[in-house]
Computed example of a mutant assay.
Amino acid sequence: MPDDLTAALEAVIAAAREHLAKVRAADGRVDDESVWRAYVSLNNSACVYDEIMRTRYDEVTPFDLEPLEAEEGEAEWAGTEVVDEAVEPDAEPTLVSVRQRRDYVVPSAVALQRAAERARDEVPDPEGDDQPVRGIGDAVLELLHSGDGTLRSLEIPELTPMDGIVVINEVGSGLDVTATSEGGEDVAFAVDAGDPVIGRLDERSFQDDHRKGGDDDREEG
């Protein structure tokens, strides 16, 4: 008949097998209750085994655990769980246009191009475009491509942000990119006079030195 230490070891093995089975059954599902309960059982059985080993033989195990209550995790989930109610779509959905502009000072075009080349090396173009980065426009586009596609990608030392503005208009029709010809890109940012502004956000950079420097240069000329 096995002693209590052997029985405790067998309990750890059984709990580990059960935990593995529950994890596989959950298949990545977050906060699965059965996985949590199996985890608690494995934790506590390991604690028992560790305690018996320590008291009987004055030996330790690799486990550094404290007993758990299954209800601890359940209470935490219950306090944070949010169930969204089903919302019916509007009969006539609203179409909005979000337009953003932010200006930048480029202290060094060469430094900016080098930053763009480093960004390309870190995030290669999936289409294998190996054309060199030529000029400021290419550099900025490369940075946007290598980042998340938003202006956050341009938050680098090689660009000094100036003022910006975000305007949200309710519009009657959406943008057709295919109808925007090269050289006529400004059309894509124009809205009808009757499209109301429903939101605006001003971004202040407070880069007074650049403004004053520009004014001084003009006065000296």
Rank of each mutant, 00 (worst) to 15 (best):
I13L: 14
I13Y: 04
A15C: 10
A16D: 13
A16V: 09
R17P: 04
E18D: 12
L20R: 08
A21Q: 15
K22I: 06
K22R: 15
V23K: 11
R24Y: 11
A25C: 09
A26H: 03
A26Q: 09
D27A: 08
G28P: 03
R29C: 07
V30Y: 04
V30L: 12
D31N: 11
D31V: 08
E33M: 01
S34T: 08
V35H: 04
V35G: 02
V35C: 08
R37Y: 05
A38I: 05
A38W: 10
A38V: 07
Y39S: 13
Y39T: 12
V40R: 02
S41H: 02
L42A: 05
L42H: 06
N44A: 09
S45D: 00
C47D: 10
V48T: 03
V48E: 06
Y49M: 04
Y49D: 02
Y49K: 06
E51H: 03
I52V: 08
I52S: 03
M53A: 13
M53P: 07
R54K: 11
R54P: 01
T55Q: 15
R56T: 06
R56A: 04
D58H: 04
D58C: 02
D58P: 01
E59C: 09
V60L: 09
V60I: 14
T61C: 12
P62C: 11
P62Y: 05
P62N: 09
P62T: 04
P62F: 10
F63D: 02
F63N: 12
E66H: 05
A70Y: 03
A70E: 07
E71C: 13
E72P: 02
E72A: 13
G73W: 10
G73C: 04
G73S: 10
E74S: 09
E74L: 10
E76F: 13
E76V: 15
W77H: 08
G79N: 10
T80G: 02
T80H: 07
E81C: 07
E81H: 05
V82Q: 11
V83H: 12
V83Y: 11
D84T: 06
D84L: 15
E85Y: 12
E85W: 08
A86H: 09
A86D: 11
E88D: 15
D90N: 15
D90W: 14
D90Y: 14
D90S: 15
A91D: 15
A91S: 15
A91V: 14
A91K: 12
E92Q: 14
T94D: 15
V96D: 05
S97C: 14
R99W: 01
Q100H: 13
R101D: 03
R101H: 11
R101P: 08
R102G: 03
R102A: 00
D103V: 05
V105D: 00
V106M: 01
V106Q: 01
P107Q: 06
P107F: 06
P107L: 07
P107I: 00
S108M: 01
A109M: 10
V110S: 06
A111R: 02
A111M: 00
L112F: 04
L112H: 01
Q113G: 00
Q113E: 14
